[in-house]
Computed example of a mutant assay.
Amino acid sequence: MISEVSLADPTLAQAPPPGWEGVRLTAPCRHPVIGVPVSVTDYDEVVAATLTAARAAVPFLVTALAVHGVVEACTRPDMGRAIAGFDVVTPDGQPVRHALNLLQKRRLRDRVYGPTLMLRLCAQAAREGLPIYLYGSTEAVVEKLAAALQARFPGLVVAGREPSVFRPLEAQERRALAARIRASGARLVFIGLGCPRQELFAWENRDLIGLPQICVGAAFDFHAGNKRQAPRWMQDLSLEWLFRLSQEPRRLFRRYAYTNSVFLLALARQILGTRRISEDRT
């Protein structure tokens, strides 16, 4: 399910950077889940599309949204606008994949999970000699993450890494950060600021950075060894949220209580609306 990405996108704030000319990028088709466009895709397709942009050193925005991210994009206008401008929005959570399959009668067999996507991209980047850049979290985490990735993927070049300052960047800071990333020679930029900060950052700096940006959130902590991932059986049963809640109950209880409720209610309304439209047509 492929659709061309227009290189004359009117939403781009600046003129396309050098390197766009003659590059034909493709991205998976997207369909709405509670009003948020989610890509019908798999790991191989996302990796291939992202690496095409990385080889050409052109902007390409990728994020992996679970229920929390989808609800943020549905309820926050700024997040909704940003997500509309992404090239790929993968179904990171199993509930999002199930919703996409149900609403669009698709047969996606697996989600496209941010931490796994990061590993697959790093593996291919190591094979092709495409340097990466890590931005987000704390100094300790990005140092451990860089070391862990290079140990796991011999030959992987970490062209640069720097932590978040945990506040919105001023215009001058944004330009300086983008200049450092471009000067590093990186071809893939992984963003670990948490949702929705990372998506807002990537969209705001799409053309300043001018490279593929992949928003992977908790992947920084997972691969650095700071947090545990849910067992595979819990992931497969759509219970990853429950595992994470057990690890961080104070931080996540209110979030999950709110976002899960909003998601289920909005999904029910969308299903009923779709059925009514179908009945009216018959």
Rank of each mutant, 00 (worst) to 15 (best):
I2M: 15
I2C: 10
S3A: 14
L7T: 13
L7D: 13
D9P: 10
A15N: 12
P16H: 08
P18A: 12
W20H: 15
E21Y: 11
V23L: 13
A27I: 00
C29M: 13
H31V: 12
H31A: 15
G35K: 05
P37C: 06
V40L: 13
D42S: 14
V46I: 06
V46S: 06
A49L: 03
A49E: 03
L51D: 10
A57Q: 14
P59C: 07
F60R: 01
T63P: 00
A64P: 07
V70A: 09
A73K: 06
T75S: 13
T75A: 14
D78L: 05
A82G: 06
G85H: 14
F86V: 05
V88P: 04
V89S: 01
V89R: 02
P91V: 05
Q94K: 11
N101R: 11
Q104I: 01
K105S: 13
R106C: 12
R107F: 13
R109A: 14
R111T: 04
G114N: 04
L119H: 03
L121P: 02
A123Q: 14
A125P: 02
R127K: 13
R127F: 05
R127I: 03
E128K: 02
G129R: 04
G129C: 09
P131I: 02
G136C: 04
S137E: 14
V142Q: 01
K144P: 03
L145Q: 06
A146N: 01
A146S: 07
L149C: 06
L156W: 08
A159G: 04
R161C: 13
E162I: 00
E162A: 05
V165K: 14
A171F: 01
R174M: 11
R175E: 11
A176R: 05
R180Q: 02
I181N: 02
I181T: 07
A183D: 10
S184C: 01
G185C: 08
R187H: 07
L193S: 09
Q198Y: 05
L200E: 02
W203D: 03
E204D: 15
R206I: 04
G210R: 00
G210N: 03
G210I: 00
I214H: 05
A219R: 06
A219H: 03
H223Y: 05
G225V: 07
G225F: 08
A230N: 09
A230Y: 10
P231Y: 08
R232D: 04
W233M: 09
Q235T: 05
L242D: 06
Q247G: 04
R251F: 09
F253E: 00
R255E: 04
N260H: 04
N260E: 10
V262I: 13
L264V: 10
L264R: 15
L267P: 10
A268E: 09
I277D: 15
S278A: 15
E279Y: 12
R281T: 08
